[in-house]
Simulated assay, not measured.
Amino acid sequence: MKDHIVVLSGSGISAESGLSTFRDSGGLWEKYSVYDVATPEAFQRDPGLVLRFYNERRRQLKEVEPNSAHLTLAELEKDYLVTIVTQNVDDLHERAGSGNVVHLHGELTRARSSKRDDLIYDIGYEPISPGDTCELGSQLRPHIVWFGEEVPMMEAAAAIVGSADHLLVVGTSLQVYPAAGLVDFVDVDVPVTVIDPGGPASVSRARVIRKRATDGIPEWVRELTSRAR
């Protein structure tokens, strides 16, 4: 049976493709408050602003491509069972060829009913406008888990991490809960690697590779495959 590699990915891996992040200097939160664009209350108060914000994110996503880190993770599926649990709402892992991707915080390329969470629609990179409705007549909203909302995929993600033979953390400082708590579900004898160019180690017992994702992931994969020979 193939080893199961579980990857926890965050905004750092997408930033290397040119996507703006929320927390870095010059990131999205310097232009918009979280309370203005990423809460249920913001959508109730000013749905037009929220829709424009995510329409812009979608437009930007259409213009960028997966980078070598995404592509290297996809290539791993030739020899390993790979599951990517991502905090990112972009589709770069899928476009790189990864077949098992769990999105904790939703997906930019999908919309859903503002009244029924199970009415979800693939919209690609098209905008959502005021007046665009689901089949029941309710306004469409981004299929995004906003601050203050439950993360519906957490239980499934915890089970995936618990089944890992290798855990790779890349592009995330694991400072945002509940996603940060996922590392607690990995077995104690499972090797954990964090790829992070700077800052404190996000997992106390992890090996840390102090490189960007596009440099660190190929290095980690080379070591992994050499040990497997």
Results as ranks from 00 to 15, higher is better:
D3Q: 14
D187W: 07
V64P: 02
V203E: 01
W146Q: 15
G12Y: 07
I84F: 12
H70W: 01
A74S: 13
R207G: 00
A38F: 15
Q87P: 04
A206L: 01
T214W: 01
G18Y: 05
D24P: 08
L76N: 12
T214A: 09
D187M: 12
G10R: 02
S9H: 01
R45K: 15
A111C: 02
D117P: 06
A159D: 14
V34Q: 15
A111Q: 03
H166G: 04
L168W: 07
Q60G: 03
A206T: 03
S202F: 02
S114C: 04
G106D: 02
V34N: 11
A38R: 12
A228E: 14
V6T: 06
V34H: 14
W220G: 00
V186G: 02
V101W: 08
T225H: 13
P142C: 12
R212A: 11
V183M: 02
V34C: 14
H143Q: 13
L19W: 06
P218F: 00
G131Y: 06
K115P: 03
S33M: 09
R59G: 00
W220K: 02
P130K: 11
E149V: 10
E65I: 07
G148H: 11
V221C: 05
I217R: 10
S202P: 07
W220P: 00
A158K: 14
D165E: 13
M154L: 15
V186L: 03
G97M: 04
S68M: 09
V85P: 07
W29C: 13
P200M: 00
G12S: 04
R222G: 10
R112D: 03
A206M: 00
I144G: 13
N55C: 03
R23E: 03
R95E: 06
V101I: 06
D36R: 08
